[in-house]
Each structure stands twice: as structure tokens, then as C-alpha cells.
């Protein structure tokens, strides 16, 4: 397969960026999307040019490092998938691809396709934990947890912190990310104790970081690679009202 790629290139946070067009040829259908970009970078090295910077690490859809907006869709069009789990067979009917970074004020572009997501770390630091110290934990089975609650907590806890929800949101809101963490702990008796304070702190921090608020577009749950539901946001809002 051959593709025409329009890739966002930007020297650093303060410079302007633009799309640059490249061509890649003879791409196998079993090649992953990121391997296709590896291939392009190998060609750029051959020509003595600076490679396209893009984020990746585990390449198995769990670390949350990879990003990329592909033809307007964060993590591509395929449902419940991270960019690193896209294969070129998914693009068999396309010849032209537009590849951009996450776009949100709170995620400044570092270079080309890589953004800074430390705002997410600071939101977790503001309250995304249970205040337990090492060594003081009771016997694990001393507190029973209803299986449905544990499963529900797990569903929220699967968030990989990639930021696709922010990238797709017209308000660049981090509500789904924040709500998933709040709801994870809210479902568990050991986490529930701090729930309200946690929610207040995390939402404050979210606003301080410049993320917008939720106005129910619900695009976030459609692009979330872990299919985290917007019902988490409802739980979060209820907590704040309580």
C-alpha cells in the first residue's frame, strides 16, 4: 500500500507549525500505524533529515503514551483502540492521511506530534489517591467489597490517561479523566471516605490547568480507547451536589 501523509511539524512550543507532506510506499497491511511512521523516519534519516517526533512506548495499548489525531479522530476512527493498536489494514481504503497532535491549550506541543500532559499528573497530585501510608494497611480480606462495585471501580480505573477525551472535546475539558478517577475510588469503601473532598480538589485543579467544563457533547466516551462511560461524569457531579 502507498500513502500520502500530511504531518504536523512544529519546532517547539513557541514556534508556528504547519503540515508537511510525505509519501510512503510498499507498506504491508500487517504493519502497525506507528511502524509506518518508523518507516518514514528511517527514510528521513537516510536523507539526512530530522525525524518526525511522536510519542509511543508500550505499543500494546496500555501505557497511554501514544496520541495522534488521524484524519480528525483522536487515536483514529477505530473504536476502543489506541493509536499504537491501529494497523495499516485498517486504512486499506484510504490513500491520504492527516496526522496531528492533541490540540488543547493545557497540552502544549513540545515538538511535531508530541505534547506535554503534565497537567494530568498535577490533577492526580491534587487528590487522585487514597491517603493511606505504606505499612498501615489492614488484612486485605477484612473489608468485603461487593463484586459489582469492584467491577464498576475497575471499569473506571482502566483509564490510561492518554488525553484523547480532552483532544476531542470542543471545550478541551478533562471531565472524563477526572471523573473516572473520582468514580474509581467512590465505588470502593476504602476510597469513599475522601470522595467529596477529592472531587472538589481535582475539579479545582482541572480548572486551574485551563481545561474547560463539560457541556454534554459526549464525544469523549466515543474516542476513549478504554470505553470509559460519561456516566462517570454524572456520578462526579452528584458528588459535588451532595
Amino acid at each position: 500500500m502507498n500513502f500520502t501523509l500530511h504531518i504536523w511539524r512544529q519546532k517547539n512550543t513557541s514556534s508556528d507549525g504547519s503540515f508537511v507532506t510525505y509519501h510512503v510506499e510498499n507498506i504491508d497491511s500487517d504493519t502497525s500505524f506507528l511502524e509506518m511512521l518508523d518507516h518514514l523516519n528511517e527514510k528521513l534519516i537516510d536523507k539526512g533529515k530530522d525525524c518526525v517526533v511522536f510519542d509511543y512506548d508500550c505499543r500494546e495499548g496500555i501505557c497511554g503514551t501514544c496520541s495522534l489525531v488521524i484524519n480528525g479522530h483522536p487515536h483514529g476512527e477505530k473504536k476502543a483502540t489506541t493509536t499504537c493498536q491501529l494497523y495499516m489494514r485498517d486504512y486499506a481504503n484510504q490513500r491520504e492521511l492527516w496526522i496531528e497532535p492533541w490540540r488543547a491549550q493545557s497540552f502544549p506541543i513540545m515538538k511535531d506530534l508530541a505534547v506535554k500532559r503534565e497537567a494530568f499528573d498535577r490533577i492526580i497530585q491534587s487528590g487522585g489517591f487514597i491517603s493511606v501510608s505504606v505499612g498501615s494497611a489492614p488484612e486485605a480480606n477484612s473489608q468485603l467489597i461487593n463484586k459489582d462495585d469492584a467491577d464498576c471501580a475497575f471499569d473506571s480505573a482502566t483509564c490510561i490517561g492518554c488525553g484523547a477525551c480532552v483532544a476531542v472535546c470542543p471545550n478541551a475539558s478533562a471531565s472524563l479523566f477526572v471523573a473516572a478517577k473520582i468514580n474509581h475510588f467512590e465505588q470502593l469503601p476504602q476510597g469513599k471516605i475522601e470522595s467529596k473532598k477529592r472531587a472538589e480538589r481535582m475539579i479545582n485543579q482541572m480548572e486551574e490547568e485551563g481545561f474547560g467544563s463539560c457541556s454534554n457533547h459526549r464525544h469523549c466516551e466515543t474516542v476513549c480507547p478504554k470505553e470509559i462511560s460519561v456516566s462517570n461524569i454524572a456520578t462526579m457531579n452528584n458528588l459535588l451536589l451532595a
Binding site: 505499612g135 473489608q143 467491577d151 475497575f154 474509581h184
Partner: peptide, 23 residues
């Protein structure tokens, strides 16, 4: 090994559970 499980549960790690609520 056992302390690790206690610690993780107290941090809110959602380990798999039986219907009884036990790990």
C-alpha cells in the same frame, strides 16, 4: 508477599473478587 496485597487493596487497587466480596 501478603503485605503487598494488603497495601494495594488499601490504595484502591480493584482486584478481582468473588460474589461473596472476598478476593
Amino acid at each position: 508477599s501478603c503485605n503487598i496485597i494488603d497495601q494495594a487493596v488499601s490504595q484502591g487497587v480493584p482486584f478481582a473478587r468473588e460474589y461473596s466480596g472476598y478476593l
